[in-house]
């Protein structure tokens, strides 16, 4: 039923999602529809559940012991918590970039080629093509094209984060989840990553968790405000920031807490 209703311009639809770590509930009755090829920002004070929510979308929470979830998350019309869902396929479709850049201690080339290799691309020319394209998309190609064989650990923090974005792009996802991708970067690198996000939304659905309200206001089309595990308000970014409907949202964006 919902499958039919699933509108073509929605990438993700979440219905009555509850999430528990052991006995403590982390998310309460979340309902949200995330539009395709736009940037959706998740904001809220630390511990509000925004990162937990993000990680339910590619089932990264599965690797933690003793977590439980009910409700439904549809990605492209498929229930991702259905027992028939293949997690590998899901995670290929829904890529993720972490808060702290996590390049593997391999060469720049091997970092980007890691995903395609695992998924069966063997030919070197094909891999080279994917690597070049991904690095170009993440705006890193010009900076690293002469040292693809150098260790990725030698890159600067901002470059490492863009490398991780390239690595995620190399498996051709449709959706990119970003967990505070710029929080550990200096202002110049932050600008670069933000510009990149603006670039990428032409082709990808992007969901970004951020602490930084200016960043949310600048970069996103929609913003969801989380507080104590609940989705308090969800609206177009311009509306939410200029005309919040909820008192809690207003308090948060005007800096009264958080």
């Amino acid at each position: 039923m919902v499958g039919q209703e699933f509108s073509n311009n929605r990438a993700i639809e979440v219905n009555s999602l509850n999430f528990y770590y052991g006995d403590s509930q982390a998310l309460f009755d979340i309902n949200i529809a995330i539009p395709r090829k736009m940037v959706t920002a998740l904001i809220g004070p630390s511990g509000c559940g925004k990162s937990t929510f993000l990680r339910t979308l590619n089932r990264m929470n599965d690797i933690i012991d003793d977590v439980r979830l009910d409700g439904r998350i549809m990605v492209d019309g498929d229930d991702i918590y259905d027992s028939k869902m293949n997690i590998v396929t899901l995670r290929k479709k829904v890529g993720m970039v972490f808060q702290k850049s996590n390049p593997f201690p391999k060469s720049i080339f091997d970092n980007v080629a890691y995903g395609p290799r695992i998924h069966g691309t063997k030919s070197n020319s094909q891999l080279a093509e994917i690597v070049e394209k991904s690095l170009e998309r993440s705006g890193l190609w010009e900076e690293v094209k002469d040292r693809l064989d150098d260790s990725a650990l030698g890159l600067s923090g901002g470059q490492q984060q863009r490398l991780c974005i390239a690595r995620a792009l190399a498996v051709q996802p449709e959706i990119l989840l970003m967990d505070e991708p710029a929080s550990a970067l200096d202002p110049r690198s932050t600008t670069k990553v933000e510009d990149l996000i603006g670039e990428l939304k032409k082709d990808y659905t992007i969901i970004i968790v951020t602490h930084n309200m200016q960043q949310a206001a600048r970069d996103s089309d929609h913003t969801a405000f989380f507080y104590e595990g609940r989705l308090v308000e969800y609206d177009e970014t311009s509306n939410l920031f200029t005309n919040p409907k909820e008192k809690q949202t207003e308090d948060y964006i005007t800096g009264r807490f958080g």
């Binding site: 590619n58 990264m60 690797i63 590998v88 396929t89 899901l90 995670r91 290929k92 890529g95 993720m96 972490f98 996590n102 593997f104 890691y114 995903g115 695992i118 998924h119 991780c164 690595r167 995620a168 498996v171």
Partner: peptide, 9 residues
């Protein structure tokens, strides 16, 4: 580990 898993391994 997370980096790998997120790439669909």
């Amino acid at each position: 580990r997370e980096g790998s898993l997120a790439l669909g391994t």
